[in-house]
């Protein structure tokens, strides 16, 4: 029972971490290696507003999301757009950006155990005899709501449909009057906000540490590869697979092996079905 409950929570957390990466890659084909850095950065910005400036929690979350969204857009508009399409440069530029943020935070003194965000609601509830604190329930709730609203957004709004069109075929989208550069900026902003949302939701469960940035990046990428690069629904499904696999290893082997699960998941996916569960990559490659 506890495996089921904690597996679900872990899976939703993974899905939240991975959605932003999957969205950006799916739409603009830019692998955003700064994803983990944005996740941690959002935690520190919220902390600064909350503790440093003494603002209200809800207000600081709102401001953080805004700042992170703008930050993502600027990052794309001024850096990534210039190297778009050059695969080597895309990877290096975004990775360098992520490193600069993470190691900058580390240098700036944001390390150790002193940086924590408060949970949204104290206390816990018994589900099937297992105590689950409210924060984890909120994570599952908001996670589900995010996936649902993302689905609604991409299927029923003009902007969302334009994004989906661009994800399928950028040139065709260009010919239909969709400004692909602007769409990529929007995608990057949404992707950054999703990373920020994940950070704000998940960081109250522990300390804000810089290392989390690397972990989140790796987990997000693992989820996206297993689900198929560029496929959002695949990412959600893969999050559940990896999430439960992780909880199972924690229960039966020990907590050190969480990362190994992610690595093995990537390697087995590449060997068995490189396109992932729902990937478009293989089909595209097949068109000789």
């Amino acid at each position: 029972m506890d495996i089921l409950i904690y597996g679900t929570i872990n899976s939703v957390a993974l899905a939240l971490m991975a959605l932003g990466f999957a969205l950006v890659y799916g739409i603009s084909r830019v692998p955003n290696f700064a994803h983990g850095a944005i996740y941690v950065l959002s935690g520190f910005i919220t902390w600064t507003f909350l503790r440093g400036l003494g603002l209200n929690y809800a207000l600081s979350i709102f401001l953080t999301m805004l700042i992170i969204g703008i930050f993502g857009a600027l990052l794309y508009q001024f850096i990534l757009i210039r190297v778009r399409g050059i695969a080597i440069s895309e990877i290096i530029a975004s990775y360098a950006m992520g490193l600069a943020i993470l190691e900058g935070l580390r240098w700036g003194g944001f390390k150790g155990m002193s940086y924590t965000l408060p949970v949204f609601a104290e206390g816990s509830i018994l589900i099937g005899g297992i105590p689950v604190d409210y924060q984890r329930i909120i994570v599952v709730g908001i996670g589900g709501a995010t996936v649902a609203s993302l689905w609604l957004f991409t299927h029923y709004t003009r902007l969302g449909l334009a994004l989906r069109g661009m994800a399928q075929d950028e040139r065709a989208a260009l010919m239909l009057g969709i400004d692909s550069d602007f769409m990529a900026v929007v995608a990057m902003a949404i992707g950054a906000m999703l990373a920020g949302l994940a950070g704000i939701l998940l960081l109250p469960l522990g300390n804000i540490v810089v290392e989390a940035g690397y972990n989140v990046l790796i987990l997000a990428i693992a989820v996206c590869i297993v689900g198929g690069l560029g496929s959002w629904m695949g990412a959600v499904l893969a999050a559940f697979i990896i999430g439960f696999a992780q909880i199972l290893t924690v229960v039966y082997l020990g907590s050190h092996f969480q990362m190994v699960v992610a690595l093995l998941a990537i390697i087995f996916t590449l060997i068995l079905k490189p396109s992932g569960l729902f990937g478009m990559q293989k089909q595209l490659e097949e068109r000789v």
Binding site: P31, A87, Y95, H256, M259, L270
Partner: peptide, 29 residues
């Protein structure tokens, strides 16, 4: 070897992961 038949970002991702994971395995075990 697993990421060699494929084009794209897979090689970058896997090479990024190995040092982080190996360091953690050595530390943990």
């Amino acid at each position: 070897l697993p990421c060699l038949p494929l084009r794209g970002v897979y090689f970058a991702i896997v090479t990024l992961m190995y040092p982080l994971v190996l360091a953690r395995i050595i530390e943990a075990l």
